[in-house]
Amino acid sequence: MQSDVIGKLSEIVIDTPDVVGLSAFYRDLAGFEVVRTDDDWVTTTSPEGWKVAFQLAPNLVAPRWPDPAYPQQMHLDFVTADLPAAIERAELLGATRLPGGGETFSVFADPSGHPFCLSRRDGVDGVGLADVMIDSPDGATLARFYAELLGMKSAYEGPEGAMISAGGQPDVCFQNVASYTAPRWPDPAYPQQYHLDVEVADADEGERQVLALGATRLPGGGEDFRVFADPVGHPFCLVW
């Protein structure tokens, strides 16, 4: 079911100790174009029109996939028609092959340690960004929270998780994780790794609505953003 839109997914934000280096990695892998650079932040746009930002986290505790004590929290899924060539390119650019995968997909860590997946899909030119995947102890329930938040529709729900989608926005997927360990913002020992920025027209009304859905207000914020946790602990920001 699609609700009235509370907000729109503005950008996917990735923590890294090297904003320039990691943004360059994804530029060279999947054609991300840099549109803004600051000392602690780089914003890029993918060829599909998604905004992906890189936020400075000097003391980042990187994921150690598949160790549940150092979880990924979120990851990006990429697709390509030529999987062997994409695998070779990812490794040449500095990605590390991780456990998992099969004939149709492979798992890597980017140079900051964040896992990502490369999957085979016919008809894709180069390497394309397919979706953002969010870890959850109950993907279907978390998908319903984000569907309400973003005004998106359920596109899939099954034993491995769920997916929501809407025209003009990235697909957002939710992966069931049995040994899920939540972020504990702002504790650096339990980092967020990623977060989503959600654009709203009215900050106070947006806050009222997300709290009613089950979000929690977190420390932090500024003149144009407020920080919250979703029902399983992933931080996200309302921005305006």
Score class of each variant (00 low, 15 high):
residue 221 G to W: 06
residue 162 A to Y: 04
residue 180 Y to P: 05
residue 127 V to N: 00
residue 107 V to K: 03
residue 128 G to Q: 11
residue 78 F to S: 01
residue 136 S to Q: 04
residue 189 A to K: 13
residue 139 G to N: 02
residue 19 V to L: 07
residue 192 Q to T: 07
residue 14 I to W: 00
residue 65 W to T: 02
residue 133 M to P: 00
residue 200 V to F: 02
residue 96 T to H: 07
residue 34 V to S: 06
residue 54 F to S: 00
residue 203 A to L: 14
residue 182 A to Q: 14
residue 111 P to I: 13
residue 192 Q to G: 05
residue 129 L to D: 03
residue 101 G to K: 02
residue 53 A to H: 04
residue 2 Q to C: 11
residue 116 F to R: 04
residue 218 L to F: 12
residue 153 K to V: 14
residue 146 Y to A: 03
residue 96 T to G: 01
residue 137 P to E: 05
residue 202 D to R: 11
residue 99 P to Q: 14
residue 32 F to A: 10
residue 105 F to Y: 11
residue 43 T to K: 09
residue 106 S to T: 10
residue 17 P to T: 09
residue 183 P to G: 05
residue 143 A to F: 08
residue 85 A to C: 12
residue 6 I to M: 08
residue 199 E to T: 02
residue 68 P to I: 08
residue 26 Y to T: 04
residue 119 S to H: 11
residue 143 A to M: 12
residue 55 Q to H: 14
residue 26 Y to Q: 07
residue 77 D to L: 08
residue 108 F to V: 01
residue 169 Q to A: 11
residue 24 A to C: 09
residue 212 A to T: 13
residue 60 L to V: 05
residue 143 A to H: 09
residue 27 R to D: 07
residue 88 E to Y: 11
residue 12 I to L: 06
residue 122 D to A: 15
residue 25 F to T: 06
residue 184 R to L: 13
residue 129 L to R: 06
residue 24 A to P: 00
residue 213 L to Y: 08
residue 166 A to E: 08
residue 51 K to G: 00
residue 188 P to S: 13
residue 74 M to G: 02
residue 181 T to L: 15
residue 59 N to T: 14
residue 61 V to C: 05
residue 57 A to I: 03
residue 126 G to H: 02
residue 103 E to Q: 11
residue 224 D to V: 13
residue 8 K to M: 10
residue 33 E to K: 12
residue 175 Q to K: 14
residue 25 F to K: 04
residue 59 N to H: 15
residue 120 R to S: 07
residue 128 G to Y: 03
residue 145 F to H: 09
residue 110 D to E: 12
residue 225 F to K: 13
residue 67 D to W: 09
residue 233 G to T: 04
residue 92 L to T: 15
residue 83 L to Y: 07
residue 138 D to P: 04
residue 238 L to H: 03
residue 198 V to R: 00
residue 174 F to R: 01
residue 52 V to Y: 01
residue 67 D to F: 09
residue 2 Q to H: 12
residue 227 V to Q: 06
residue 16 T to V: 10
residue 121 R to S: 10
residue 102 G to T: 12
residue 187 D to F: 05
residue 140 A to G: 09
residue 149 L to Q: 02
residue 219 P to A: 12
residue 156 Y to R: 12
residue 42 V to E: 00
residue 192 Q to R: 12
residue 185 W to T: 00
residue 181 T to M: 15
residue 18 D to H: 10
residue 22 L to W: 05
residue 220 G to A: 13
residue 75 H to K: 14
